[in-house]
Design a binder for these strands. Structure first.
Lengths: 195, 195
DNA sequence: CAAATAACGTAGTGAACGCTACATAAGTGC
DNA sequence: GCACTTATGTAGCGTTCACTACGTTATTTG
């Protein structure tokens, strides 16, 4: 065991609590006081375990991304791209309105005040949104190569379209849209599908 | 003329400057110092002319909404609903990426940290987004009544879909998407149209 | 020219922010 | 047991926040 006084809280659990606060209030909207209270620790413990507020956010974001990316990959593994895209949007309609968690997508909601002072936070979020769009694009490229999509289909544009709809759904969810309403949006969004 | 020392700045122009700051930085991200600097006045002048930060934001938002609603109504007056919807999204692709103004839509971008402390700001923005969605819905209801849209079309869902795409486009624009890229999204989004 | 009125610039206010110094407590290694 | 290491709680650091008290200046009214 490591030398010195042992940590009296579970780091993973504390990070989950911090994630929830950032998700609900955004980066700048979440104060250290909000965070320490939710995490059940005092400021020095937070700083010694996670560095500072920005580094804590980055770790919480990575944790969120890990969970989110895992589910995305499972859905993208569907036999057809059409099913994969519908799966992504249906899952978004469900998870964005899940009452047991903050509404909306962290990637969109956390863009808090986002003054120049938080520019690197915006960059982190943008990078995560791009990761997601890239994976969708790759799946669509494969579908075109396999003949599911016509040769003239544009995987990059289609991926951007799906991503755009999902991001819009996050704004809608934050504004109070229900899962049923978002599912109707998904119906219409998929009506545009080339196949 | 009113008695007393006359105001040494143009209130409308100062409000425009404040709007630009809020648009770029969000409500909480815009400090009074940022605002007074951009407006070319000192804090006491701001408070005496506009009340406080929240009231200033409300007035700036109303000004933005006025301009935005006027253009929306012009576009919705197009002969067909199909043309109106395409017009809305094409105009969004253009204005969201207009380099002479902050990127994105104020209704989406200004949702600053949005802690409970700024709840009424969120409500203001949500209300404006709903105004827009309602007008689109009304136009689509008319189109259905006039026979342009089939009887089984759902104007409320279609309006929500168009709004969702536009809001997603705002997130995309804030992340650096170009007008051309957004126009490709519009192409795909309109492929879903019932007619 | 007063008196009244209202905006002005200076220079702050108290509160909340992110963050940390410091003494103490709780473990390990010898 | 004793030195060493690391986490903890208290208490407070300097900075920035939204906002304002106050004396001054510019204008209208009579």
């Amino acid at each position: 065991m490591a030398v010195g006084r042992p940590r009296s809280f579970c780091k993973d659990q504390a990070l989950d609590r911090a994630l929830e606060v950032f998700w609900r209030k955004g980066f700048e909207g979440a104060s250290i006081c909000d965070l320490t209270e939710a995490m059940g620790i005092n400021p020095p413990s937070l700083y010694s375990a996670f560095g500072n507020k920005e580094q804590l956010f980055r770790q919480a974001l990575d944790r969120y991304a890990e969970v989110y990316a895992k589910r995305r990959r499972e859905i993208l593994a569907a036999p057809s791209a059409r099913e994969a895209m519908e799966g992504l949007l249906r899952d978004a309609a469900r998870s964005l309105t899940d009452k047991s968690r903050p509404v909306g997508c962290l990637y969109v909601q956390a863009i808090a005040g986002a003054s120049e002072h938080a520019a690197c936070i915006r960059e982190m979020l943008k990078s995560k949104r791009e990761d997601s769009e890239r994976e969708i694009r790759d799946r669509l490229r494969r579908a075109r190569a396999e003949g599911e999509l016509p040769k003239e289909a544009d995987p990059a544009a289609l991926a951007r379209y799906i991503t755009t709809v999902a991001q819009g759904m996050s704004v809608q969810a934050a504004g109070g849209a229900t899962r049923k309403e978002l599912d109707r949006v998904v119906d219409l969004a998929l009506g545009a599908w080339p196949a």
